[in-house]
Design a protein around this nucleic acid. Sequence first.
RNA 1: GCGCCAGUAGCUCAGUCGGAUAGAGCGUCGGUCUACGAAACCGAAGGUCACAGGUUCGAAUCCUGUCUGGCGCGCCA
Length: 553
Amino acid sequence: MHAGSPITPLSLALSREASVVAGGADVIAVLEPPADTGFGDLATNVAMILAGSSRRNPRELADELVQRIGAAGGLGGYVESAVVAGPGFINLTLSPRWFADAARTIVVAGDAYGRGQAEPRERILIEFVSANPTGPPHVGHARQAAYGDGVARLLEYAGHDVTREFYVNDWGRQMDLFGASVAARYGQLMGLATEVPADGYQGDYVVGVAERIRDEVGDAFRDRVDPPDAEARALFTALGRDMMLATMTDELERFRVRFDAFASETTFHAGGAVTRGLEALVRSGDAYEQDGALWFRTTAYGDEKDRVLRRSDGSTTYLAADVAYHLDKAGRGGDRLLDILGADHHGYIARLRAVVAAGGHDPGMLEVPIVQLVSLIEGGEARRMSKRAGTLVTLGELVDDIGVDAARFFLVQRSHETAFDLDLDVARAQGNENPVYYVQYAHARIAGILMQEPAAPAAAPPPAAIDPSERALLISLARWPQVVDEAARRRSPHRVAAFLMDLARDFHAFYHRCRVVGEAPEVVAFRLDVLRATRSVIATGLGLVGVEAPDRM
RNA sequence: GCGCCAGUAGCUCAGUCGGAUAGAGCGUCGGUCUACGAAACCGAAGGUCACAGGUUCGAAUCCUGUCUGGCGCGCCA
């Protein structure tokens, strides 16, 4: 049951009849495309559902329901025939009037067709990508960005109030190492024999960071980097952080991913929020001292073991900052928190949930979708990537290679729960082996026809006959509101991509069987609506996965 | 050893709160441009849905067990 779908009136009318057959029980008849299009346009298993509760023969119930459909004038003239098949399915063949009305409805709704299906509407804070600003974003970040932004767009379209947030992990050991690495490279630029720490950042981009710092400060720190003093370390770390964060956001923006807010780990430390968070946990009895360290009793909330918040040397762990951050997020008054994490962080979920629960919030408000790994295939072989050796493929390189549209479509096409291999040869292809162009081409083709501005009569009756390809196309279009709803509820933008492939296929088949220009007036009128409706839904769907809908290619 | 995710066509993957003969793209084979864009369409071949039990009118889907792969199991982040 989805507002705006041309299937909904049918479903409601059928539900009324089914309730009567069931003796007054409340029934919802779900209408879906049948397994085989030869069976009809839509099918329902409602008789089989009723058979279960009323202990009656499903086929007998179906027969009765079919009679009532006939008596009800074919559900308002929309049903041409209804037949019982198989174990008790009812197959409906719809009338030309339904198809004409459906196309018109979608055209009139335009971009709003499918929008606002969410119930109830929520204020959702979605955090994703969140990385150490110690290097450029890589392919793994790209998948998380494509997924996180896809979910955000989907939730917005479904009617939720969404905020995209990037948590900057700009504090701690990794940042210190990064700062030391930058300082060493700066020293080398000054002609010194400084060396990047063995466990530091070896990538060439660090040289670039050092060069830009040299351009700013000149040789002022020449004598302070071998070894670097505290002030020098802080400066190189801070400048490096700013540059890398700027690189990340620039690259992500080029990838069509923008954030509404940034949260800095350093800020939580500097502002005292980390200390206050730990004190709150101690006060509530959720944290305790042992062996000189401060422990978070996460086992009380389902974790397998307790976790250290403050080490015996007095320094705080990553988790301590996340306590502050998540208490902050949970306390902002929204309904739901989404943390998009990579597969290597899934062991962290129980800890985050414990933070939310210990803060007195419903732990159910926190959802943590896990994005599995993506690897690159080229020439039939896995492309080796190592962060240490600096051979990671960056987001920027990926975009330069295959383009934003292909990158986003490929990365969001597969369920985030599945580790998958991205074949660069296929993604790079400009031709027919590339799925993203298959969908875009459908959009461009429609634009091409509409640009000819074919004339149509203002008000035309439905055409006498509807082609099978038109039936398939309209039924697909009618499913869109439900696709949006399911994809949003399940945080699964890949369902949008899969739908677009189906829709494009239906359109291309229609295109080859049905002409628009030069047909009878009522046929032209109908098919123009079909074209406009299809173009609108494709454009909307592509927009939800961050891909452009070109008028020509 | 424990936890999470996965195992579906030659390859990459959809489909998983039970429904009819299990799908798509790529690849392979064969057709289709003197009519709106052939970046397209039509057709064919290709499957023990990892395996074994169970639940029921009906299981790729739910339950149990087994096998295989990825990731994780730190006073790292």
